[in-house]
Structures are given as C-alpha cells and as structure tokens.
Amino acid sequence: MEDEIASEAGPQDKRHASGWNTLALSVAGLSRPFFAFGLSRTLWRNEVSAPELLKVDEHLVSDLIQQVENQQEIVDDARASPEEAFSASLYQMELDRLRYSLSKYLRTRLRKVERDALHVLATVDGEMQGRLSDREREHAKGYVDMLEDHFTRTCLSQMPSNFRSLTNTSQEENMVQEPNLDTFVVCRARDDVGLVQIGEAAGREESSMDLRQGDMFIVRYRPIRTLVLGGRVDLI
C-alpha cells in the first residue's frame, strides 16, 4: 500500500506547491477534495473490514488532516464573499466527508487498538507494535494499565495469589483475546496477483484462485493477509 500511496501523494504535493490551493472553481480544482476523499476512503474501508490492525501511515494521515485544515480556512474566507459562497458550500460538503472518513478511520483503529491491546503489547517480535503509531502505542499502554488497575483493585487482589494474572497464556486458559484471522472478508484485487493458495487448512485438496485486477472474492482473511498488507488487494 505504501508504494501506491507514495505515488498518489506525489502529484498532490506538486499541486500544493504550485499555488493550486486557492478556491478557484474549475474542474481541476474540484478534483482535489474528491481525490483525497477517495484515498482516505480506501484507507478506512480496509481498516474497517480487516480483522486485525493494519499498518498505519502516520505521515499520510497527518498530511491529510493538515490539508483539511488549510482547505477549511480557504472555504471559511470564501463563504464571506457573495460570488464564491455557492462553491464554498460544495467544498464544505466535501471537507465534511473527508473529515468524517478520517476520523472514522482513526476511530476504527483506536477501537481495534483497545480490543487487541494485550495481544499487540504481548507480541515480542515488534512487527505488530510497528503497525501502531507512537500515539496509538501510548494509548494501548494507557488503556491496558487502566483496565489492569481497575480489575486488580476490584477483584483480582482478593483472589488467591496464583490466580491473579490477567495474561495467563500457559494452559488452556488463554485470557488474551486475539483477532480472528479466519473470518471471511470481501476483497478486490488492485492488480494481477496470479494464483493464490486458499483452503489448505480445511484438509481438503489444496485449492487456489486466480486473482486478476478488479476481481472480487469472498475468502478467509488469512490466505490473503500478506496481499492486503502489501497493498495488492483491497478489502470492501
């Protein structure tokens, strides 16, 4: 996904630099908020559909937020002048959509961070932790501390000492919730991926699917996990 985003962010920056950022109602002018909206929509749709946390692109997100702010100032100025008031309201709607999709994206992530907090913090290889932004990691720690403190003071401290752990994974009593990677998702290929192995876990003959650009499939998340993380497949 990073490559894709990088290539998409490129021309955007150029436009930004060439003083495009004024409220002139031209066809080219309108494409920008739509464009940013499409990008952020892909982001949050993937995040909403994926059972696990995906990697965050902090720069992209803060960049988008920054642009929303800039744009908002321009729209605010434009609303004051009668001849631009109409186009300003169109822009305002786009901005609201963009703001919604951004905060929806961050909210979804935050909820997943909270849900999987113990799991994420417990993984040692750091791969999972690397998917979080610094801010989210801090939030995960704070959230776990908060719950642990709450549970300890309410009941765990009054239990026999060898039953006090919250994160006991040693036996069948696994207290750490993990994302279910075997859930079904709807996906669409961004480019020609080729053959993808699916269904080996079912004990049947190995089956595979031929994934071409634009193809849509309903599959388990696990076989296409690397493709989603690599940005070659979008979730819907």
């Binding site: 937020i65 609201d96 919604y100 905060s103 929806k104 961050l106 935050l110 801090e138 908060m146 709450h150």
Partner: peptide, 30 residues
Amino acid sequence: LFNTYDRILTNFTQGLNLDLTADLQPPKEL
C-alpha cells in the same frame, strides 16, 4: 475508570487537530 479513560483519550486526541468524537455519522447534508 471513566475519568481515567477520559484522560487517556484526551491525551490521544491532543495535537491531532481533528475531533474524533465529532462526525459519528456520515454527513448527508450540510
């Protein structure tokens, strides 16, 4: 617990320049 959560959430949103608790529903009209 509520107050603690309020604090860590405020901590999270601070400096984000985006009010996460607004826009809970997708906007239809201005």
